[in-house]
């Protein structure tokens, strides 16, 4: 039994105490974030739940709170998503494939890489200025749905490129070797051996980028998306509004009824974000079982 009695009891007690204190500290650090988020959610739900009625989805904005809804904003957000999803997918994944699979590793590609990483962190208002100059003025798209969607596409491109690159890089080299050794060329290898394994990661990145885009307000205000739209956009060059702009508009009014509407709008927006993130998780799990 001497074997187990040799320890320095005092030192062991001290070590346990430190371990216990740090455990508490880390738990506290986590709970600050969780509590803040819960407080926000509860506050919003209390404010907005009474306004979360069919009218919110069916009515257009109105001067009178009891008749106001966000139909045009919800539809505007959906339309914008539908336009930017294919464009940003093709451009973002295409750029990632070029950078990872085709381009050599030289000074030029390293410069591009650095640029993309930097762009991912640029404030969104800057993209708004770019969109205003390029799409609204230069290409004369006016304050249209298309101009908004294109601005948002540029905003999310760096995010999509970086996440798609990571997904491509995670595919083991041995899989590419296997394909090349059978006589596949570059595109055959990318499309048949690499992309199927990288797709879940790419899709997750794309969905997360889309959920960032539907929450963005600043660049769209910059390019002049309207805050009061009492119609649905009929084509891509029509004027439009989106959910966060509608919420922003309601919040800036003095009447408390509109603040409740804003809270209801936030609930809808959050629910949509949650749904998209959930879809991303489902996708990842579904595909990771196969590969």
């Amino acid at each position: 039994m001497n074997l187990l009695q040799g320890g320095n009891r005092h030192q062991i007690a001290r070590r346990r105490k430190i371990d216990f204190c740090l455990h508490l500290l880390f738990a506290a650090a986590t709970s600050v974030g969780v509590i803040a988020l819960c407080a926000l959610l509860i506050d919003i739900i209390i404010d907005g739940i009474s306004r979360l009625q069919p009218g919110l989805f069916e009515n257009f904005p109105s001067r009178r709170a009891e008749r106001a809804g966000m139909k045009s904003a919800i539809v505007g957000s959906m339309y914008m998503l539908c336009i930017m999803l294919p464009i940003s997918f093709v451009l973002g994944v295409g750029a990632a494939i070029w950078l990872e699979e085709y381009a050599g590793k030289n000074r030029f590609t390293r410069l591009i890489q650095l640029n993309i990483s930097t762009l991912a962190g640029v404030p969104s208002i800057v993209y708004g200025i770019l969109g205003l100059t390029l799409f609204v003025r230069l290409l004369m798209l006016q304050r249209s749905l298309l101009a908004g969607a294109l601005t948002m596409t540029i905003l999310v491109l760096p995010i999509i490129i970086v996440s798609a690159q990571e997904a491509l890089r995670a595919v083991p080299k041995s899989r590419r070797d296997a394909s090349y050794a059978l006589g596949a060329n570059r595109w055959q290898t990318v499309s048949r051996a690499v992309l199927p394994s990288a797709l879940p990661g790419i899709l997750t990145g794309v969905i997360l980028a889309m959920s960032r885009a539907i929450g963005e307000t600043a660049p769209l205000i910059m390019i002049g998306a309207l805050t009061y739209v009492a119609f649905l956009p009929k084509h891509m060059l029509d004027q439009f509004t989106v959910m966060p702009i509608q919420i922003y508009n309601w919040l800036s009014r003095p009447q408390p009824e509109f603040h409740e509407l804003a809270a209801a709008g936030i609930i809808v927006l959050l629910a949509m974000l949650l749904l998209m993130n959930f879809a991303a998780i489902l996708l990842r799990n579904k595909f990771s079982k196969i590969s």
């Binding site: 083991p172 041995s174 070797d177 296997a178 199927p196």
Partner: peptide
């Protein structure tokens, strides 16, 4: 190759 490298198919 050294390591068996079947495709995940």
């Amino acid at each position: 190759f050294q390591q068996p490298n079947p495709f995940p198919k």
